[in-house]
């Protein structure tokens, strides 16, 4: 055993140097640039792994969008329907409520167009978009009904209805991207590119869209997600792998990422009807909120730039988390 001597060791600089960075994408257009939004939201721009400010610029603050549907959902968990009340019956009122809750963007899902829901026409969808645009002045994310054939009918109409507003419209998929690329190019919107939790396919969708003429730097990636307890570790590792590749200079993975936090979290039974012994009548309603917030915090740390959320309390938690992670922003 040696006795203690006075040794000073310089702490090595462990900061990684990154050659690449994540693109900045701005959503929304104010009157100056031909739109009618009161503000715009810019996401992305980081040149370091999430929240490691000593490695490089962290870019823009993550943004929170709130999900609004064009039709009143018939099976919303009571915690959510209580929070939004009657506003659920009108997309405009719902969007207003969402902005009150802290939405920086509105994510309008055109679920009413789904053939099994209300099979709404392209004109109906366009009217819903206009209603939301008039009700609030935050930027808009417009999301189809996830049925490719129907999306290809409604998205040209809604894109045209939001002409000049620089919305983010989705989703372009490996099997269905041509129509959306064409309308986003024509009407000046940003593009949301979807892939099933697979880096290769995420890159492939980006390549396909850019082959079809869409600028790579205007794409936001939606890699799909799961909720806490449902493979979030895998989601995290895929997201991390993609992010490290992007930071290392892979142009096909340099896009900011959107995750559908509220939708995923409120799907699981632990959120809606928690099956645990420790659940009491007092805390029962908190489970869903915490499930959504925890899912969001994990995804934030994986580098997600744009969180689509639902419950006002969860939004508060996430905003709080962002403040603590990024005290300077």
């Amino acid at each position: 055993m040696t006795t203690t001597t006075d040794v000073s060791i310089a702490i090595p600089d462990v900061a990684e140097k990154w050659g690449g960075g994540i693109n900045e994408v701005t959503i929304g257009a104010t009157a100056d640039s031909g739109g009618s939004r009161g503000s715009t939201v810019t996401i992305g721009g980081s040149k370091a792994v999430p929240f490691m400010s000593f490695e490089g610029s962290l870019g823009c603050k993550p943004a929170i969008a709130v999900e609004v549907w064009d039709i009143a959902p018939d099976a919303l968990p009571p915690q959510l329907s209580e929070a939004y009340g009657d506003s659920l019956n009108s997309p405009g009122a719902w969007a207003k409520k969402a902005v009150e809750f802290g939405a920086e963007l509105i994510c309008l899902r055109l679920m009413g167009a789904h053939p099994d829901v209300a099979d709404k026409s392209p004109d109906d969808c366009a009217a819903a978009v206009k209603e939301v645009l008039q009700a609030v002045d935050v930027p808009l994310i417009i999301w189809g009904c996830d049925v490719d054939e129907k999306d290809n009918q409604i998205l040209p109409a809604v894109s045209s209805a939001a002409n000049g507003e620089n919305c983010l419209i989705g989703t372009a998929k490996e099997k269905n991207y041509r129509t959306l690329v064409a309308v986003c190019l024509a009407d000046g919107h940003k593009l949301l590119a979807e892939s099933p939790l697979d880096i290769n396919i995420a890159k492939q969708v980006n390549i396909l869209c850019s082959d079809a003429g869409y600028p790579l730097e205007n794409i936001v990636v939606f890699p799909t997600t799961g909720a806490l307890g449902y493979g979030i570790e895998y989601v995290y590792s895929i997201q991390e792998r993609g992010r490290l590749a992007g930071l290392s200079g892979d142009k096909q993975l340099s896009q900011p990422v959107l995750c559908n936090v509220g939708y995923e979290a409120w799907r699981v039974k632990e959120a809606k009807d928690p099956p645990f012994d420790c659940v009491t009548d007092e805390n029962r309603d908190q489970w869903g909120v915490m499930w959504e917030a925890s899912t969001g915090v994990v995804l934030l740390q994986s580098g997600v730039e744009l969180l689509v959320m639902r419950h006002p309390k969860a939004i508060e938690y996430i905003n709080e988390a962002i403040k603590r992670f990024l005290p300077d922003k």
Partner: peptide, 16 residues
């Protein structure tokens, strides 16, 4: 380089 020129957009626009 499969597409030396930018592909023409009208084709996809027609589907609109």
């Amino acid at each position: 380089n499969l597409f030396p020129k930018m592909p023409k957009i009208p084709k996809t626009q027609s589907s609109r």
